[in-house]
Nucleic acid binder design. Structure first.
Lengths: 198, 198
DNA sequence: TCAATATACGGAGGCGTCCTCCGCTTTGTA
DNA sequence: TACAAAGCGGAGGACGCCTCCGTATATTGA
């Protein structure tokens, strides 16, 4: 699915057993803590929750972005797979719409993931760029098909659309925010439709 | 223009001269520092820049949001006035579009203002709500007119549109980001247009 | 002009977070 | 079993937040 970035580094020698174990503990703790306290949660707290020293956390995940990437790797995998499975869908625009809604749903259940995406977009570290690129590619495959079939205009790049949707999610705070974003996505897609006579 | 929220508190006795002076120094310093270092800049740094103790800063602006509100009050005033001046424009959709672009332009020149708006949206303090409400009202007056004249569907509330646009700006990082957002706004408005035959 | 007093100032201090560094421990191997 | 290599942990220095209170200053009334 994903190249093993950060998961098991292709070193000369395999990782030691305790290191592997601690890594898993950290990921598990981070998932919980990010979901509870948001993406700005204290890293010390995560290490504590994992029963591990702070130094160990920083060795496995040198930066906050590295931790984000690893924690949400499965989710990104899922979205990439979803896009791949719909590249032959009979209605490409619906496929695009569904994918964006899936992104929103996913992000809605994983408190902290949006902020993680946003923070990743800000700090242009290589690891964040990679995650971002995977999502853009997935979205791009769906969007391109709509454009090629002249169902949508070519007004926005996949990157733009992704940024727009992530941005919309970012400022939402109410518990029902997912219901607020859904119509925004519909409007955005409607805005990309070709005028009837074109 | 604006009610004097935070500017000159209607106390029994007028503010002391040194207090007034320090307040201006703080605002001036905050404007500079926010523009340079973004909205997360250190408050200690602002106090230092202003040549004032940290305690003085906190007395004048008990929370970060208070400082944001005061710093960007003029900008919000400007947007409110702009909306008021266009409520009779011949083309209401163009007026709406222009206003949103003006918002983006303003925000583009004032590094830190978007984050300030976003942070204000998150922390639902009364003072932030007030600023937010002023912008929503301004935008609402333009949007309502489009809807009343059946030029646009009322699929989104003014609040939704504002959030969408602010969100779009929020994740932009490149220097040319304003050029990237402009077409997004156009697409959004196109998505709100009624189908030709409606 | 000179107290007297309300008002405002400043910054030390307590707390929490970030991240690095390095002496000690554990694991895998010969 | 012994010895590297790999990994662990947490103390420590830096920084930012915000409060609290002793000190200073502007204003006012006599």
């Amino acid at each position: 699915m994903s190249n093993n970035e950060g998961k098991t580094k292709p070193r000369g020698r395999p990782q030691r057993a305790d290191a592997r174990r601690n890594r898993e503990r950290l990921l598990s703790a981070a998932r919980t803590v990010f979901a509870t306290n948001g993406a700005n949660a204290s890293l010390q707290g995560i290490a504590r929750e994992a029963g591990v020293g702070i130094g160990t956390l920083y060795r496995h995940f040198p930066s906050r972005e590295n931790l984000y990437t690893a924690v949400y790797e499965h989710e990104v995998d899922h979205l990439v797979a979803l896009a791949a499975s719909r590249t032959q869908a009979p209605d490409p625009v619906a496929a695009l719409r569904d994918w964006l809604q899936a992104l929103v749903s996913l992000v809605a259940t994983k408190t902290g993931m949006i902020s993680a995406l946003a923070i990743s977009a800000e700090t242009k570290s290589a690891v964040s760029q990679a995650t971002s690129a995977r999502l853009i590619d997935a979205l791009g495959s769906l969007l391109d098909r709509c454009v090629t079939q002249k169902l949508l205009r070519d007004a926005l790049s996949a990157r733009d659309v992704l940024h727009a949707v992530v941005g919309m999610c970012l400022i939402q705070t109410e518990p029902d925010w997912q219901q607020r974003v859904a119509p925004m996505i519909d409007v955005l897609i409607d805005g990309l439709r070709r005028p009837a006579g074109d």
